[in-house]
């Protein structure tokens, strides 16, 4: 009987043969369905209803028209500014952090003094553990126009001060560079690990062929860890519309909002402060769709370097 069935459905037969593996897969699958896919469905549903806080989704009414929240977001006078700010800040952070972290990892790897290496490594990844509130306090003490250390120096040298916190364009730099400072050490750990995994024979071969340190970095280290770099890039593209809510919310003010107001800060002001959960869900959905498209595009691009994630 079974063999007849198998003949009819070769796929079913194959599946049945591997039933033990599928059984083992089940818990993992269940995890994704319950914790990853179900929330997507709930999120989509929440974005098209007037959410009832107490009764939940079941007690909520469908919006009329159902796309009202999306319309509200897209029609906001701030939409284009929000999108461009988010992309500029996010991409700048990604494109600056990756090469600097890479450089740091290579420099640390090439450093022969173990003590110095450990010291620098610890110092560079320490900021990762600081909260943005603390970093804001540090930035303010350093960059404040009236009594910040940096500005005191600048005033002594030039007689002028630099409005780090009130000039919109300079402030965007403060946002980007403070994030690079915070994350670069942590990011470099991944690259350090990748470099440590490079086959030593390759270096020896390069050395025998007459390559110096710079050339072996260029021809051995970099090509070997390129897949890891591309992978981190693809993964970061998945979060490209998260330009760092915590940081910007803590640090921004009305004088600089035009250049650092991002989608998430708008959602906070417009949606969450007025308990409009549905609006937040709608914007979250929009962000997810854009991020997914970007991840697919970047991965396609990565295929050209044979370094794609899938």
């Amino acid at each position: 009987m079974q063999s007849v069935k198998g003949k009819r459905h070769p796929l079913l037969r194959k599946l049945w043969k591997q039933r033990a593996f599928f059984l083992m897969l089940l818990p993992g699958l269940a995890y994704y369905v319950i914790y990853k896919y179900a929330p997507i469905v709930l999120g989509v549903a929440t974005s098209v209803v007037k959410y009832n806080l107490r009764k939940g989704l079941a007690g909520s009414k469908l919006l009329d028209p159902w796309y009202s929240n999306f319309k509200f977001f897209f029609e906001s006078n701030y939409f284009s500014q929000l999108l461009s700010n988010t992309l500029i800040i996010s991409l700048s952070k990604i494109l600056l952090t990756i090469p600097i972290a890479l450089l740091l990892a290579i420099l640390l790897y090439e450093c022969h003094s173990v003590r110095l290496r450990r010291c620098v490594q610890t110092l560079t990844y320490m900021p990762h553990f600081l909260s943005w509130i603390v970093i804001y306090g540090m930035c303010f003490s350093l960059l404040s126009e009236t009594n910040g250390l940096v500005n005191v120096l600048i005033r002594k040298l030039t007689g002028h001060t630099v409005p780090f916190f009130t000039d919109a364009h300079i402030f965007r730099g403060v946002i980007i560079w403070s994030d690079v400072w915070k994350s670069v050490g942590w990011q470099s750990i991944i690259y350090m690990a990748a470099i440590a995994g490079v086959d030593p024979n390759l270096y020896e071969a390069a050395h025998i062929d007459g390559a110096g340190r710079l050339k072996s970095i260029w021809y051995v280290t970099l090509p070997s860890i390129m897949p890891v770099v591309v992978t981190t890039l693809v993964l970061k593209c998945g979060n490209v519309l998260d330009a760092g809510f915590d940081q910007i919310f803590v640090m921004y003010n009305t004088a600089v909002r035009s250049t650092v107001d991002i989608i998430d800060t708008w959602v906070y002001r417009t949606g969450l402060e007025q308990w409009n959960i549905s609006l937040s869900s709608a914007v979250g959905l929009f962000k997810s769709v854009i991020s997914m498209i970007l991840v697919i595009l970047v991965n396609q691009l990565a295929k050209k370097w044979e370094a794609s994630v899938w």
Binding site: F72, S76, N77, Y78, T166, T254, A255, R257, S258, D261, W266, R269, T270, E273, Q274
Partner: peptide, 24 residues
């Protein structure tokens, strides 16, 4: 309360930004 068709959060944000621009 915020009436239909008005986004007060945007209005307030725009007002604050522009007033700051006038002041600076």
């Amino acid at each position: 309360s915020q009436p239909e068709g008005v986004n007060m959060a945007d209005l307030k944000a725009y007002e604050s930004e522009q007033l700051t621009a006038f002041i600076y």
